[in-house]
Amino acid sequence: MARINDVGGTQGFGAIDTADDTEPFHADWEARVVGLFNTLRAQGLFNTNEFRDAIESMPPAEYLAASYYERWFTAIVALLETKGVLEPGELDD
């Protein structure tokens, strides 16, 4: 079945906020997430397609509630758990 990321042609998302924001990041943690993503990917811990897969595998309600870089962070953590780098729940200790 199609996943929540696959939104082309889906009704109901409303008007577009066309504000031309030129700041690449809206908080420091967003930059750290991008830095972590690029570092871990360059080290071969996961590839871009696995990363997209992890984002798309978020439960739909969580996906829609999360900001763009929250999705990235969720996907990185999920991949690190899948690969055995992190124990499930280790981040919450």
């Binding site: 939104v7 082309g8 042609g9 889906t10 009704q11 998302f13 409303g14 008007a15 577009i16 906020d17 066309t18 504000a19 031309d20 924001d21 030129t22 690449p24 990041f25 829609l64 763009y68």
Partner: peptide, 18 residues
């Protein structure tokens, strides 16, 4: 450069193809 927020929004992504 990094994309604007609207480009990443569901509103833009869902509607512009339709």
């Amino acid at each position: 450069g990094p994309s604007p927020s609207w480009y990443k929004s569901e509103a833009y992504r869902s509607r512009v193809v339709r």
